[in-house]
């Protein structure tokens, strides 16, 4: 997905910010060689994906290329599960359910259109943007930009105050025993972030000096940010949290319509053209 996606981006987007990122990508590829297995440039931002074994070397390379500032390190769990089962039932276009039942962008957009009682004229523009931006669904779980093959990913972001650019680095981790080398000796700030990621996702960081709880009490069980960690309060007490579209009181609605109408009149020219 990633390579085709990137080529498409290269053709239709030529903003100077993206150009700079693409040059940077070439530089990174030159330094890392075949280790770059996924890449993505969009909206003035750069993502690369490396194998977990190359994680430490990637960090070293980034630092030597001037990315001296450590932004963050964390993880993603791509398992498409609804944290709140009731919400998934009550709401047909629930986000996590999308990945399983309606992976197609058009289907989701249609579902949205049906779901909404009063489609507004401004819908069209958004739906068009929605279709173009939706990445092609892979077989199995939807993963993010720069691709991914496993359930868990570790990702980190390094920034360069002198180049004024940043890069997001991702790596796929093993499903059963996710583990990746610690980079705390390269970026000192990573020490706490790795502790946090270990606590939240259960990733092991060989080489970390002191992997212990940072936020939660020592007796806490489970890894809260994994998608299969349930929020007990939600299991006990249903709350229509994701459905927040009930009708407003008439006075409030009239006021909001006035605001939206004013906004529409103001932006009528360019937006209606873009939408149709």
């Amino acid at each position: 997905m990633s390579s085709a996606d990137t080529e498409e981006q290269q053709q239709d987007q030529t903003s100077p910010a993206d150009e700079a990122r693409r040059r940077l990508l070439d530089e990174l590829k030159g330094a890392l060689g075949d280790a770059v297995i996924g890449e993505h440039v969009q909206g003035g931002d750069l993502w690369i994906r490396v194998p977990a074994g190359e994680w430490r070397r990637t960090a070293e390379t980034c630092k030597s290329l001037g990315f001296t500032y450590f932004d963050f390190l964390s993880g993603i769990d791509w398992m498409p599960s609804a944290p709140n089962p009731e919400d998934a039932e009550t709401l047909s276009v629930e986000p996590e359910a999308d990945a399983e039942e309606a992976p197609d962008a058009e289907e989701a957009a249609e579902a949205e259109a049906e779901h909404e009682a009063e489609p507004q004229p401004s819908e069209a523009g958004t739906v068009a943007a929605f279709e173009t931006a939706q990445p092609e669904p892979e077989s199995g779980w939807t993963t993010g930009v720069a691709g991914g093959e496993t359930r868990f990913q570790v990702f980190a972001r390094f920034h360069s105050p002198t180049r004024k650019m940043g890069v997001t680095v991702k790596a796929d981790l093993d499903d059963e025993s996710p583990s990746v080398a610690s980079i705390h000796e390269i970026y000192f700030g990573a020490e706490w972030h790795e502790r946090e990621t270990w606590e939240m996702y259960g990733f092991a960081f060989p080489g970390h000096p002191d992997l212990r709880h940072i936020y939660l009490p020592g007796e806490f069980e489970g890894y809260p940010l994994r998608k299969d960690f349930p929020l007990l309060a939600r299991e006990v007490k249903p709350w229509p949290g994701l459905v927040d579209v009930e009708d407003l009181p008439p006075a409030e609605e009239a006021r909001q319509d006035a605001v939206i109408n004013a906004a529409q009149e103001d932006n009528a020219g360019e937006q209606s053209e873009g939408g149709s």
Partner: peptide, 10 residues
């Protein structure tokens, strides 16, 4: 009562 964190795990 927990306020906006009524469903938090911590």
């Amino acid at each position: 009562c927990g306020g906006p964190y009524w469903d938090s795990y911590s």
